[in-house]
Amino acid sequence: MEISRHWRLRKQRYALVGEVCPHCEAKLFPPRDICPECGQEARTLYQFSGRGEVYSYTTVYEPPAGYEENAPYTVALIKLEEGPIVTAQLTDLGDQPVEIGTPVEMVTRRLRQDGDERGMIVYGYKFRPALARVAA
């Protein structure tokens, strides 16, 4: 069981909480404590909007252990509107085509379970095509 390593990251995983560098304003996700832009310490929490666009994407047909139940699934690089790129699954695609540039938004979903069905459920961010507003 890997309880503590997932628990430790819950803020990042559930809600895309990263950091903002207090020195140069760079937005950082994942949080990394030393700002890659200016090299100074960055530990100020920052709530990302969760909006971004697809930078690249592909489909996994041969999943690693722990991900078999969801295969095939789409993984992507998402460029967040604040700047950083994150690796994440795309979800709720249905029959919607994906393209580079597709606007997406963050949702919190089940990523996997730790071990078998007796293990804890690991939740975290995924992205889905931005919800269309149809009703007026």
Binding site: Y14, E69, N70, T91, D92, V107, T108, R110, K126
Partner: peptide
């Protein structure tokens, strides 16, 4: 969907 449950939907 496969990655949804009452927790994710509630969120």
């Amino acid at each position: 969907g496969l990655d949804e449950d009452v927790a994710t939907m509630s969120i």
